[in-house]
Design a protein around this nucleic acid. Sequence first.
DNA 1: CTGAAAGCGCTAACAA
DNA 2: TTGTTAGCGCTTTCAG
Lengths: 350, 350
Amino acid sequence: MRVRLEDVARATGVSPKTVSRVLNEEPSVKESTRQKVLAAMESMNYRPSPSARGLAGSRSFLVAMLYDNNDNPASTYLAEIQDGVLDACDAHRYSMMVCPLRVRDQDFIRRVDALVSDHHIDGVIVTPPLTDYAPLLKRLQEHGVPHASISPVNHEGVIGVCMDEQKAAKALVDHLLQQGHRRIAYITGFANHGASRWRLNGYKDAMAAAGIAYDPKYVVQGEFTFGSGVLAARQLFTLREPPTAIFAANDDMAAGVMWAANERGLKVPQDLSVCGFDDTPLATQLWPPLTTVRQPSRDMGKLAALQLMELLRGRGKGLLVQVPYSLQLRESTASAPHEVPAKGRRKTRA
Amino acid sequence: MRVRLEDVARATGVSPKTVSRVLNEEPSVKESTRQKVLAAMESMNYRPSPSARGLAGSRSFLVAMLYDNNDNPASTYLAEIQDGVLDACDAHRYSMMVCPLRVRDQDFIRRVDALVSDHHIDGVIVTPPLTDYAPLLKRLQEHGVPHASISPVNHEGVIGVCMDEQKAAKALVDHLLQQGHRRIAYITGFANHGASRWRLNGYKDAMAAAGIAYDPKYVVQGEFTFGSGVLAARQLFTLREPPTAIFAANDDMAAGVMWAANERGLKVPQDLSVCGFDDTPLATQLWPPLTTVRQPSRDMGKLAALQLMELLRGRGKGLLVQVPYSLQLRESTASAPHEVPAKGRRKTRA
DNA sequence: CTGAAAGCGCTAACAA
DNA sequence: TTGTTAGCGCTTTCAG
């Protein structure tokens, strides 16, 4: 029925253990033997049984991708990460399991155990905001399961992938400043995401460098969702001196801002400049197209998984690699409207 | 270290086999014994090893979700399906693997084998357009692996979940007709998706019922993507008698139509009504919000997975369940513009 | 209704 | 550099 390791051994005239060694890329095999075995595996179409390997050995060749189901970022972001991780798995003959977690659940640890310990998971890819969720990291360590993080807040002793979001955010706000904007608002994301803070810090950096005092009125709490962007924008529009530009911590919220602008009859970018962060597909599907920061999510998923696998294969300790960002300047941002000398007027257009 | 089945047996004073029977819900166990064993499992926090079960037995408690990585629908759609499948897995103590496939790859069958046969996958969830891809279905059958389909074209002997898309599309176009539209265009999706045809048929049904002759000029080929929606719309706008309403086979393309309308200076819905299909998050994030058909994707994923598990547990043969659609009438559709007596004029607005 | 034995396909720890 | 001997934790026979 199934071609087993033993069959390959018999066909090659070596012991099963030697075939096992070849399979696991152990160095202590004579090159000629190795070639013979490899050839036999190929011609017999041998495919090792993950169950047997998992049961007998210490490795399962299984990685899991963990994400938060409550406070999760846009599903397009996670989907891209997932595709990237799968790319890496493909290249290294790993399989991937997907595990949505609910941080607020009592069940949380139980679910981690069920996945990691039951399936003998070799390693884990952790996405925001789980990257810095202490109970999770602690539990993984207790299980002795290594992890790679995507955009973690704490960089010490962590492997995975990150981006200089603060610098990116500063560059984006610098662009707004260059266009003459002074009243620039920022809409934050969930507090437990590093992204919310880094992007806020970048905003602050840019404003400070331009000599504009930080004004908390122009910083509104959002939740990374479209709806929260709408609410935040409505709130900003009611200010006595409404902003001429709004920087939302991600594209979904920026879309919400544009929606609220439409609702209020404000024209983007003539009356209001809007920018986001992530460069999700949505950014180019909005009208006008959204100025944002491109984050190479799929590559980030792949790179994080590759670092994890480097470590799993004992080929190194794994690194925290940094990927470059790039500004996507599009039509949702333009020069600030000319200031009318009289102050305190409100824009109201049908 | 690990609590094994044998430990539970010893603690309960029964044989390992009996514990196994309880674990597998075999009927031939005395209720009192069963309760004792269950209690011991619980108190000892016993968790069976999937590897050992997979190796020894015929079941792995693993299902796989397959999707096409080339011609795939919007990632938000797949993400929702995936969440639904995971819901069902959770409830029935199954684990899920994810497997993106590329229909055009030479590697295709190899990848199916690798997943299904290597991992002893118990069953598979198939998403469009793989639901009707013969080589895949054939291979699954050869492996003896059952599958549940989401929105399959062929309903015979198939289990899973479907929706009456034709009727839904007809209802949507009926709505446009009621608003006075006569020149209604349709943008199709990929030809290998049943959705493209059903929705086209619904369109034809409605037009025919209204006594409007089918005019192929008003039916343009798209690819379910935003970009293809833009292109299709541009093409329609150049017609001597451009449509007053456009029905795109999914929301992404409808968003493309609205984008192209903006580009051309057409106002939605005053100059042009637009509607889509699926009710993805995008639909309510567009301005104006998009009239569309709600498809309960997450529920569909869950229901399909549940049917599969019914079958796997031998509790029945599994069904092809039908879920209801619902029209979401929003602001992207309105009464047809008043016809100017003179014919052949083109709308051109700055 | 319950139990004893014999593996599933592979790798660990030793040897040689 | 290679082979031998035991299992990994469960389920499958087949008996009782």
